[in-house]
Structures are given as structure tokens and as C-alpha cells.
Simulated assay, not measured.
Amino acid sequence: MRVAIAGAGAVGRSIARELIRGDHHVMLLERNLEHVDPEAIPDAVWVHADACELALLESAELESYDVVIAATGDDKVNIVVSLLAKTEFAVRRVVARVNDPRNEWLFDDSWGVDVAVSTPRMLASLVEEAVSVGDLVRLMTFRQGQANLVEITLPADTELAGKPVRKIQLPRDAALVTILRGGRVIVPQQDDPIEGGDELLFVASVEVEDELRAAVGVKR
């Protein structure tokens, strides 16, 4: 997979290293010449360019990339990069970093963003996930499909204990994708039994979250 990352700061470099470990082709776009350091990540393609400049993106052949990640520390820049990537270069997948949670409402498909990643929101969700039992916690939003990755930790005395997965009457537009049980990651099958304390991960649209709560026997 070919991935272009706008912003070669600490965040952009960390993402690049992880992607390169996964054998992906990575290009780093950085406008600050002092931050352009090919020796730091020699396997990446480094380009000294302002990712908001259309001509420079054309020179970098952005249209040949499968994913663009707008990872700068400036939300305005990330929005512009996302919009250019989607509308001018038809990049299939655009992921944008949200630095200020107050700007999160801007990061949607109208600005070319498929997935918005807000570090403060993710950290808050992880805290909620760690302490919340019997409630629904949103972990990530998939903007392109208007769906969320949500987690529900079943209480120890859940009425579902001992029943197979097929007994969960899921609403439309909701799917159980994983059961976390202790150190195990379980890909759920219809006959797998449910246990108290299970962490259930679903992909679901916002509209059916209340129905999802009811299906697993938890209250809002």
C-alpha cells in the first residue's frame, strides 16, 4: 500500500515507522526544511513541500497513493490537505488528525475526511472503556460510513451468560466483530457462549446504539 503523510513531526514519523514495518511504501511531506531528515527514516520518501500547495502535490504524484494521512499539528492545514487529496487527486482513503477537539465537527466527508482521529477523544474513550461496565463506549468514528466502533463490557451477572452469540438479536446496521475475554481475542461464531465480563466490540451506526444497548441488556 502507498501512503502519503503530511507532516513529519513526532506523530508523522511515528506513523511512518509503523507503516514501513508493515512493508508499506511511505512518503513524508514536510514544509519545514529543518524537519526534513531522511536519515531518521531512510526507507521513507522525503519531500520538502507545503502539502497545501496544489502544484507541489502534483509534483509528488499524490494521485498514485492509496491513503493520505494529514498529521500536522495545525487543524487548518489538515483540513486543506484532506480536501485537496480527495477532490483534486481522488485519493481513496483520507485520514486526518484532530488536534483541538472543538474542531472535530469539521472533519467529515464534506471536507474530504474519511476517518478523523482525535487523540484527546481517544484517550477519554480508553479511560471510559477501562472503568465502564454495562454501558456503551464509543472508541472510534468511521466518518465515511457514519458508523462507530463501540465497546460494551458485560456485567458479571449478565442475563446473556451461558447463551450462544446467536441469541443476541442485533439491530440492523450493527455487527459484533470481536469478543475480548481475559487475554483472548475471539472472533465470534454463532454457537460461542457469552460470559459475564466479556468485552464486546461492535461496529454500529449512531441511530441504532440504543437498540444495541437493549439487545445486550444494558441501560443508557
Rank of each mutant, 00 (worst) to 15 (best):
G134F: 06
D173K: 12
V67F: 08
I194L: 15
H25D: 13
D109S: 13
R143Y: 02
E39L: 14
G7P: 11
V113M: 05
E209M: 10
V218Y: 00
A4V: 07
A124Q: 07
E195N: 11
A40R: 12
I15E: 06
A10F: 08
A204R: 04
I20R: 05
N78K: 05
A161V: 03
T178R: 12
R184W: 04
Q146A: 11
L84N: 02
I20T: 05
S59W: 04
R2L: 00
E104H: 10
E58R: 15
P120E: 02
P101S: 01
S14A: 15
V127N: 01
N148I: 01
L33C: 07
E18W: 03
L123K: 00
T141H: 15
V113F: 05
A124T: 11
P42R: 14
Q190M: 13
V150Q: 02
R166Q: 11
E104I: 13
A175Q: 07
Q189N: 11
P120I: 03
G182R: 02
P193I: 05
V127W: 03
D74P: 08
P120H: 01
M27Y: 07
E39Y: 12
V206R: 10
T153K: 08
G9R: 10
V177C: 08
V203R: 05
I79W: 02
D173N: 13
E159L: 08
S132A: 14
V165Y: 06
D135P: 01
D198H: 05
R121I: 02
L176Q: 04
L28Q: 06
S82W: 06
A204Y: 08
M122R: 00
V94G: 08
A161M: 00
A96N: 09
M27W: 03
D43W: 10
A214F: 03
A96I: 09
W111R: 11
R17C: 03
D74E: 15
E63H: 07
V117R: 09
E63G: 14
F202Y: 04
R92T: 09
E211N: 05
D210V: 09
H24W: 05
V177H: 00
T158F: 01
V98A: 12
R143W: 00
A116L: 12
D74V: 14
V218L: 01
S132H: 05
D191M: 09
V80F: 11
A6M: 13
V187I: 14
V216K: 04
A40Y: 13
P42W: 06
R213D: 00
S125F: 10
T158V: 01
P171Y: 08
Q189L: 11
I5C: 06
V36A: 09
R121P: 02
L139N: 07
N78G: 04
D109A: 12
W111H: 13
V3L: 03
A49Q: 00
V206Y: 11
T153Q: 05
P101F: 02
L33K: 15
T158N: 01
E209Y: 08
R13C: 14
R97A: 09
L54N: 07
A51H: 06
A70R: 10
E39R: 15
E88R: 11
V26N: 02
G7A: 09
A174Q: 06
L84Y: 06
I69A: 12
A49F: 08
D37G: 06
N32I: 14
W105Q: 12
V208D: 07
D100H: 13
A85T: 02
V216Y: 07
